[in-house]
Design a binder for these strands. Structure first.
Length: 492
RNA sequence: GGUCCCUUCGUCUAACGGUUAGGACGGGAGAUUCUCAGUCUCUAAAUAGCAGUUCGAUUCUGCUAGGGACUACCA
């Protein structure tokens, strides 16, 4: 039997880490089994739907390099794959359930439902849910309510006796008494759109889905879905409920923990390789030592048995580490083109970069590469090249263990040594040694000499290595900045 | 409140019922005769608790505790 799995997001917000991980698990499982990965858009909530969300879904999957075998855009034999385009279908199936006595029309107003709810809360009884007010209306009562123009919903008739069990690959059997299943959930809303439960079950059946891999938050509605499959007389698929992704505080990962949308991560300069690798590692592992996986690796070695049961905490620091690792693996050319948009946004290079700018960006990659965690780091790391804000506070030039007098001498003598050496074309190592000797002569630490020079040239105590900075800046500009710093120390 | 699920270092995780409980991130210390970063080395750090089964429990069973999810005309 061919494995067929689906990722079925609801376009009501940006694709977030949790959703994408579900997509990835489905995708890798399908690929590893030689099966099909299907994308289905569950846009039945017309209130919360947005075009932007739908576009973000496509953009995110494209960026990650996740191709769906069937779904919107690419089509497939079981389409359409957008639920709003299957509108009539759900209605038919829901009405069939009514005809078979498995479901019924309900005319209760939202106000009445709210009142019932409030009364249940006030009476402190266990919350019972819908009171099945319309479960046994006579034809006359119905006709009367129809005549009033009330648009009904269709509710599933949940058995009050017995229990329902479903099997989960990870959890084993999960059983729930039918009386504990949410009483008579709505299948078809009054606007004619199906709820998640109905649409999901119908589509999974019609599209031949063999395995349902979804977040553990769906476990409570598992029995309900089984009841639906039984009502239709269909065979339910195999379930696998994925552990959830939590924030540091153990709550469901959300915005207050930091970025959660893939779009945000992308904007900050995370690489798709890092996102895929790290996100897959929360709740899954191959063995006790392998930590780097490409998408292609995972398409081969992903195993459903290796999925962890317990929820996992999303560690932003570890993602940073992965990202740094992948940045260091990039070729200089690739990294240069990845960094270019950030330099453009900062106004450092023009929107349509010139050939000189292209060369410049490429030339700064080697010194910047091992210092970056995310692509946007390139901006602060190289800003000294593109904007020149001289440091006028002498204290900044003075290294720990040095003083103003020594710093001035170090700057003055050091500048001479440095400039002379550079002009004579001496090796950097040689000049460096001379500067070290200077520090010995002044009886200060090596950094007592380097720090003032560094601040003079890069306008910062933290910078790329001194000689890298000089090479990127050019000799003339280096000389200019050194002279300026010397002047700052001589005046007053 | 009710129902269900979960539990190994701070975090992600590994360990046929038998190991000094392993690795990674993060932390700490050191090296790399310029800062930062990177790289390398070293280091601290865990089986939630209590019973039971067993020659032997991280591993099997039960209970307790803690955490989480769900409880909508949202998915």
């Amino acid at each position: 039997m061919e494995v067929r799995v689906r990722y079925a997001p609801s376009p009501t917000g940006l694709q977030h880490i949790g959703g994408v991980r579900t997509a990835l698990f489905n995708y890798f499982f399908a690929k590893s089994m030689g099966g099909k990965f299907i994308l289905r858009v569950e846009d039945t909530d017309r209130e919360r739907y947005s075009d932007e969300s739908l576009q973000d879904l496509y953009d995110t999957l494209d960026w990650l390099g996740i191709k769906w075998d069937e779904g919107p855009v690419v089509g497939g034999p079981y389409g359409p794959y957008i639920q709003s385009e299957r509108f009539e279908l759900y209605k038919e199936y829901a009405e069939k359930l009514v005809k078979d006595g498995k479901a019924y029309y309900c005319y209760c107003t939202p106000e009445r439902l709210e009142k019932v709810r409030q009364e249940q809360i006030a009476s402190k009884s266990d919350y019972q849910g819908y009171d099945r007010h319309c479960a046994n209306l006579t034809d006359e009562e119905r006709a009367d309510l129809e005549a009033q123009g009330i648009k009904p919903v269709i509710r599933l008739r949940v058995p009050t006796e017995g229990k329902t069990t479903f099997h989960d690959v990870l959890m084993g059997d999960i059983t729930r008494k039918n009386k504990d299943v949410s009483p008579d959930p709505i299948l078809l809303k009054s606007d004619g759109f199906p709820t998640y439960h109905l649409a999901n079950v119908i589509d999974d059946h019609l599209m031949g889905i063999t395995h349902i891999m979804r977040a553990q938050e769906w476990i409570p509605s598992g029995p309900l879905h089984i009841l639906l499959y039984e009502a239709f007389g269909w065979e339910p698929p195999i379930y696998c409920h994925l552990p959830m992704v939590m924030g540091k505080d153990g709550q469901k990962l959300s915005k207050r923990h930091g970025s959660t949308s893939v779009r945000d991560f992308r904007a900050k300069g995370y690489l798709p390789e890092a996102i895929i690798n790290y996100v897959t590692m929360v709740g899954w592992s191959l063995d006790d030592h392998t930590e780097f996986f490409s998408k292609e690796d995972l398409e081969k070695c992903f195993k459903i048995e290796n999925i962890h049961k317990a929820p996992g905490v999303f560690d932003y620091k570890k993602l940073d580490w992965f990202n740094g690792q992948y940045i260091r693996e990039c070729s200089d050319e690739k990294l240069a083109s990845l960094c270019t948009p950030y330099l453009q946004d900062a106004g450092f290079i023009s929107k349509d970069e010139t050939d000189e700018e292209k060369k410049l960006v490429l030339s700064l990659i080697p010194s910047v590469k091992e210092r970056m965690k995310i692509l946007s780091d390139v901006v602060p790391l190289t800003s000294f090249l593109f904007k020149d804000e001289a440091v006028t506070d002498k204290q900044v030039y003075i290294a720990k263990g040095s003083n103003e007098e020594n710093t001035q001498k170090a700057l003055e003598e050091g500048s001479k040594i440095l400039l002379a050496g550079l002009k004579e074309g001496k090796a950097e190592g040689e000049i460096e040694e001379e500067l070290v000797n200077l520090s010995k002569a002044l009886e200060i630490k090596v950094n007592g000499v380097f720090q003032p020079i560094r601040v003079a040239i890069t306008n910062s105590t933290v910078s790329l290595p001194l000689f890298d900075s000089i090479r990127l800046l050019g000799l003339d500009e280096t000389e200019r900045r050194l002279e300026r710093a010397n002047k700052i120390f001589k005046e007053n």
